[in-house]
């Protein structure tokens, strides 16, 4: 079984690299820009099956280790992007999304191969709350990743248009309005999921505080709290800015892209520290 897991761990980055190449061809050669990619559901199923079988084998969901969470983020980002592609009939942004997905899965695979699988949170009561907390956080990171990618693309497209740059990107990106709107919806999704995660996290760790392992786990928990808080803060700032401050799409996109970058750095740093 372990060999099968190893194979799957290395196959997944390769599959995502395949998507990067396929979407790169679409982006640069501008072909099949409105044709759905039939491989995505297959890869989603394979990835999901890998995580489910692994969870059954290890007796725990793949949410208790940062590298596992990265893999789940890669899967959920792919799934959300696939829905976006189905609804929007446009695959011009796929290259950028799958670059992020590939990096997430590659990092996950590299480190999962060298990491002992064990829960990183204290064994406390309320397993259901913990699962909900982790799952909501994963969806929130996914949403922020998408918001970051679409926000960055919006900013790049806008910069090109402002500079009257009729170059490589001019007619390769979707309209600014669409990029801004997608970023905004992702930010809202991120806020909702991260709020759920924060509330359930408070319940879980509130109960667990003072337990026998609490002190040992505190550094990792603090890192998680910092990453989660920054994510939540980014979403709150963007939502308040747009809702109350009447920010333009560009400013929301700037916050989303900057926020995603910050969270990504913090996430990697927390993994490195752990």
């Amino acid at each position: 079984m372990d060999i099968l897991f190893k194979v799957a761990e290395w196959l997944l980055p390769l599959l995502y690299m395949g998507l990067v190449i396929d979407y790169g061809v679409t982006f640069f050669l501008r072909i099949r820009t409105h044709v759905h990619n039939g491989w995505i559901p297959v890869i989603i199923l394979f990835h999901a099956a890998f995580l489910v079988v692994r969870s059954i084998h290890l007796g725990q969901p793949p949410l208790f280790n940062g590298y596992e969470i990265l893999s789940v983020i890669a899967l959920s980002t792919t799934a959300v992007y696939y829905i976006v592609e189905l609804v929007g009939h446009d695959r011009r942004t796929g290259l950028f999304v799958f670059l992020i997905v590939f990096l997430a899965q590659y990092t996950s695979s590299v480190f999962l191969a060298n990491t002992a699988i064990e829960p990183t949170t204290p064994a406390v009561a309320g397993q259901g709350w913990r699962s909900l907390h982790s799952l909501a956080a994963t969806f929130a990171y996914t949403a922020l990743a998408l918001a970051g990618v679409y926000g960055a693309l919006h900013l790049i497209g806008r910069r090109n248009l402002k500079r009257h740059n009729i170059g490589l990107l001019f007619d390769r990106l979707p309209p600014l309005e669409l990029l801004g709107r997608t970023c905004w919806y992702a930010i809202i999704g991120g806020l909702v999921f991260m709020t759920i995660s924060v509330v359930t996290g408070a319940l879980v760790y509130g109960r667990g505080a003072g337990g026998p392992d609490a002190e040992a786990m505190s550094a990792k928990i603090i890192a998680k709290i910092v990453v989660g808080s920054v994510t939540w803060l980014v979403c709150v700032v963007a939502v308040l800015g747009k809702g109350v401050g009447k920010w333009s799409d560009s400013r929301v996109c700037l916050v989303a892209a900057g926020g995603f970058l910050t969270v990504a750095i913090l996430f990697v740093a927390s993994l490195a520290l752990s």
């Binding site: 001019f170 007619d171 990106l173 979707p174 309209p175 600014l176 309005e177 669409l178 709107r181």
Partner: peptide, 8 residues
């Protein structure tokens, strides 16, 4: 084409 770069 220009309008399509800005508006959906």
């Amino acid at each position: 084409e220009l309008a399509q770069q800005v508006f959906a």
